[in-house]
Simulated scan of single mutants.
Amino acid sequence: MNLKALLGVAGVHRKESPRARSVGRTFEYLVAIAVLLVFLQLVLSYTHFPIEYAWLDRVLWGVFVAELVVNLILVQDRSRYLLHNWLSVLIVLVAAPWISWQGDWALIFRALRLVLFLRFVSTFFQDVLLLLKRNRFGQILSGFAFLVIGSGGIFSYIEQRPIIDGIWYALVTITTVGYGDVVPLTQEGRIFGSVLIVFGVMFFSLVTANFSAFLIGSDQRKLEREILNYVRQTEKRLATQSLQNEKHVESIMLHSTQQIDRLKEELHRYRALEEYLLDMQQKADPVPEEFTTLKESSDQPSISNEGRANPYSHVGPSPFSSPHLSALQDIEHELLSVKRKLR
């Protein structure tokens, strides 16, 4: 459990659904605006122009209630959300507009909502730490602070002024703001101010350049991540399509092999039938029962000129005479060549 979860300001967990996280981010902006209004209301309560509107308190309370209720509806693990956002539940309960808190208690419970700033401050500090780690920005920023403080001390010594005035002068000079409320009055102070302007502006440009590079680099890294995700998704789609194509080719080859084997069996059976018929014609034996299916009609056998029945008169010319046999052999050779190509 991280620090934000311990403080009760974690928001929607990263393991929740995309819709819940998207709605949670939208409510974070609304809560940030509400917390800012609470801060202004608290600060102005110590001035002569306080903001005391009953409708404003109801609107602010409604924002916190809406965030809590909507997120509880969308998240899958409600117990985890309540555990990591216990402060939101407490704010909704104790900061209800119909509960009239008096004196210091009203100030305490009103300021309690400012703790929600930690949700946004923690994210901000994470970005700051990331910025300081890149391009040695932390070292550059430390050098900038050293330059401001050191220059302020030198200016204070030359002009015999308080150190706070020297630091203020160095800061507004290096950042090229130049308010003009603190200026060098001696000749030595003006010379030092001229040197500080030249080197200070150069150093400050280095700071702003690193900050700009961080902002541009963030957009570039985001674009690179999107491109990388697209490439990975494309690779997955291509791998799936390739696997499907391989399975399809395998099924086609298997079917073709089965068809070739079946045709070879038919060819072998027809050759055996032809050999048997030729042998029977030479021996003048009757045709066996299993080959009578070749007869297409139930006509009576014809009588030969010699006066006896011819048992093969109904068969007609053999389909396996030499022209038919050569054609079948050609078909067999073609099928074998096709099978070799498929393999």
Score class of each variant (00 low, 15 high):
137 F>E: 03
259 Q>G: 01
293 T>G: 12
301 P>F: 02
336 L>M: 10
167 I>S: 02
160 Q>C: 03
199 F>D: 01
222 K>P: 00
157 Y>D: 06
206 L>Q: 09
200 G>Q: 00
295 K>I: 07
260 I>E: 07
224 E>R: 07
289 E>A: 12
232 R>V: 00
133 K>E: 13
187 Q>K: 10
88 S>C: 04
172 V>D: 15
95 A>F: 03
237 R>W: 04
26 T>C: 12
163 I>T: 05
180 G>F: 05
34 A>V: 06
28 E>F: 04
48 H>L: 13
108 I>R: 10
83 L>Q: 05
317 P>W: 11
144 F>Q: 08
160 Q>F: 01
117 F>G: 04
41 Q>S: 15
247 K>T: 07
294 L>E: 10
41 Q>H: 14
71 N>Q: 14
333 H>Q: 15
278 L>P: 00
149 I>G: 01
58 R>W: 13
153 G>V: 03
5 A>D: 12
307 G>Y: 04
122 S>A: 10
164 I>K: 06
136 R>G: 12
28 E>A: 08
189 G>K: 02
122 S>M: 02
117 F>D: 00
337 S>D: 14
304 S>C: 07
47 T>V: 12
39 F>Y: 08
91 I>C: 05
152 G>N: 08
32 A>Y: 05
146 F>L: 14
216 I>G: 02
47 T>S: 15
149 I>E: 01
254 L>M: 09
216 I>M: 13
322 S>G: 05
163 I>D: 04
33 I>T: 06
189 G>I: 04
208 T>Q: 11
272 A>G: 08
265 E>H: 10
142 S>C: 10
213 A>V: 00
263 L>K: 00
195 V>T: 04
46 Y>L: 15
139 Q>A: 14
204 F>N: 10
22 S>V: 00
104 D>S: 12
151 S>M: 02
184 P>L: 11
319 P>Y: 01
45 S>D: 14
190 R>T: 14
89 V>A: 14
58 R>M: 12
155 F>C: 00
233 Q>H: 12
5 A>I: 01
52 E>C: 03
278 L>M: 12
14 R>H: 14
62 G>M: 10
204 F>H: 09
3 L>N: 05
295 K>R: 13
272 A>C: 03
285 D>T: 05
